[in-house]
Design a protein around this nucleic acid. Structure first.
Length: 258
DNA sequence: ATGGTAGAGTGTCTA
């Protein structure tokens, strides 16, 4: 079974690339972030004709996550227990969706950006991660994959130039500690062992031709519970998907499990 | 400190 995650930066504007990506890599389950659409706005007909089911959530024009699966899409849950921000327009219910696909519990996650370290949204980000961690410790016994845009670069090697992030989010010690807490609870970065080398970015800002100059960040991750990680045979970052006009600013991450 | 680009949709907001 092949599982992928992709911050698509608007599903409606990217639907052609999404369909081509699914076909090119023979993907069974695709977790999407920043769909930027309500469920009723989504162009699902093409995906359905390709044999996929879709579950989506999103209530505003900025966030939104979805799961696309052709190996089952059962027990769909929008959000997780204790998730902060209910009733907040920037927040909650459009950032997490979970379902059981092919025997694996998959969560598509769009971790809050944080904006600036002195912004209230940064506090909300850390709170959101803490609440997710609370429930994720209950899921670690089963075959679980926490996938998506974590908006954290856990290590210096995940950043093209640490000096440029001296006063920025994504690299602060509290954010990195929040990410590390998932690893300490048993979750494993299942991609890095299969993506060796110094530059394994998943995101390149649209500004300043950062993709062309390979000045990116690694912020999209597949964290697997031990039962999931033991089944991973291969993984890669589809860097080429970021090239050309009409690309998302994120590349998809693909994982194979037996 | 600012601005650069892209996408939501008309006012700016978000990333």
């Amino acid at each position: 079974m092949r599982i992928a995650t992709w911050n698509v930066n608007s599903l409606r504007s990217r639907i052609g690339r999404v369909e081509a990506f699914l076909e090119r890599h023979d993907v069974d389950v695709l977790a999407l972030q920043e769909t930027k659409a309500r469920e009723d706005q989504l162009p699902l007909m093409g995906l359905q004709s390709m044999g996929y089911e879709v579950a989506a959530c999103g209530t505003n024009q900025w966030n939104g996550v979805a799961l696309v699966s052709r190996v089952g899409l059962d027990d769909v849950e929008v959000g997780f227990p204790g998730m902060p921000g209910w009733g907040d327009p920037v927040a909650a219910e459009s950032r997490a969706i979970g379902a059981t696909c092919g025997g694996v519990r998959v969560w598509s996650l769009y971790v809050p950006n944080g904006r600036k370290p002195d912004d209230p949204h940064y506090v909300y980000k850390l709170d959101w991660l803490a609440r997710l961690h609370d429930v994720a410790t209950d899921w670690v016994e089963g075959p679980t994959a926490l996938v998506g845009d974590w908006n954290i670069a856990p290590r210096d090697e995940d950043v093209f130039d640490m000096a440029q992030f001296a006063r920025s989010t994504h690299v602060t010690p509290p954010e990195r500690a929040a990410f590390q807490a998932f690893l300490d609870s048993g979750y494993v970065d299942v991609v890095r062992p299969h993506a060796p080398g110094p530059e394994v970015y998943t995101y390149w800002d649209y500004y300043r031709q950062r993709y062309e100059r390979n000045r990116g960040l690694r912020i999209d991750f597949v964290l697997g519970s031990p039962a999931f990680a033991a089944r991973v045979t291969h993984a890669f970052i589809d860097r080429e998907e970021r090239a050309g006009t009409g690309a998302s600013d994120h590349a998809p991450v693909v994982v194979d499990v037996v």
